[in-house]
Nucleic acid binder design. Sequence first.
DNA 1: CCATTGCAGCTTCCATGGAAGCTGGTAGAT
DNA 2: ATCTACCAGCTTCCATGGAAGCTGCAATGG
Lengths: 231, 231
Amino acid sequence: MRVEKLDEADRRPSLVDDAYAAMKEEIRESRFPPGYQASEQEIALRLGMSRTPVHEAAIRLQEDGLVRILPRKGIIICALAPADMREIYDVVIAIEGRAAALLAEMPEAERGVAATELAAHTTIMAAAREAGDLAGWGHADECFHRTLVERAGNGRMIRINQTITDQAHRARMLTLKLRRELGASVAEHEQIIQAIRIGNAASAQEQAYRHRSRARDELLPLLESFGLKHL
Amino acid sequence: MRVEKLDEADRRPSLVDDAYAAMKEEIRESRFPPGYQASEQEIALRLGMSRTPVHEAAIRLQEDGLVRILPRKGIIICALAPADMREIYDVVIAIEGRAAALLAEMPEAERGVAATELAAHTTIMAAAREAGDLAGWGHADECFHRTLVERAGNGRMIRINQTITDQAHRARMLTLKLRRELGASVAEHEQIIQAIRIGNAASAQEQAYRHRSRARDELLPLLESFGLKHL
DNA sequence: CCATTGCAGCTTCCATGGAAGCTGGTAGAT
DNA sequence: ATCTACCAGCTTCCATGGAAGCTGCAATGG
């Protein structure tokens, strides 16, 4: 039978989905800069659709913490203060730490597959560092951390991680240029991978925790000293 | 000046907010049972409003993972399989573990206040257990865990915890009746409190982790053996 | 000169209707 | 008997308009 079974999930995106994706992309790339305020009408015009899909997409974006809807004033793009970055880091520490432990507790076969994939990303990072390719390094690092959570196989954790990553994306783009010790990350990633490979859950969690804590302690003072009140 | 400054946050709830709160309550109390499917029209009628607020509230509830919107079919209340409970437990372990560590790292004054509040909830639990008051025990336990996360002061963690707790609420009501060893929880809570009080972050995290792991390992087999495919 | 009031213009909020899509059943053909 | 095509009825999706609320400014009264 050729039943397409488009019952679940795989439907063509509605206008609301389009609006959601488009607005999220604009925010990620700072084309809607933080603090920018616009009316739904204005955004609808820009996206070439009516106000309703924009309104409903804004609700979802507000739920994601990316915008705030000010009743009868408009939609405002949320800015991130250093305090927000601290919150975000703590969530990431919690989620990635647990994900690393879960990975290490898996059967050896699955652990091995995950470790190999993580190692591949880390290798790319090391190469990018040698080549002075900052963007490439950042992308590979992002892949490593996303893989770490996704391979743990907990859908709710994956979703939380995605949401929090979206929030931090703009700040990440900025801090990428401020970093100096890219080498430490590679070494720490390898320790995490090793702990997963040998199935040591406690160590995997601890290594993941330390890795993010170090990055946090390195970047937060930078953000504060640069007087970045919001981004 | 008597400016009310209703600029931020404190506005009277809109119809959408009403619909959101009402539907969430209906779901929590199983008056909309899991698996139940209804049209927006039907719910709008029941809540005495038009379809639009119901539609927008449904978007938020879907974002929370409580319902699914099936295009051109209706709104369906999400059921929880044991696999979902496992996911939820892992998220809670991650969040509460980190929250406990954060609390233990706070200045002594704040730690003390939090520890005292946590101890109060635990005392109520112990008393309820003596009195055979299962509902009272459950409520105090809930307060303990909510306080643990809220006192850590991370708004994003609090939100995640709230969302995940809402999802698990129905299952919690059910498993409450199945539990046997209520005493273990009291003892474990006291260990968590002690670690926070002396400022031992690693221990606090570990104790919180073990507490939830034990509960998970105790309840998940129960759910599975009772053949509870969904709730 | 300062405070208050009224008003105009902006915005979202919510209701409603047309359009399109999915489902299930029925009638017809093979 | 079985399979296909179609149709009716249901649903959401999206556009649009009226209503109400907030803001800022100008005019008015103290």
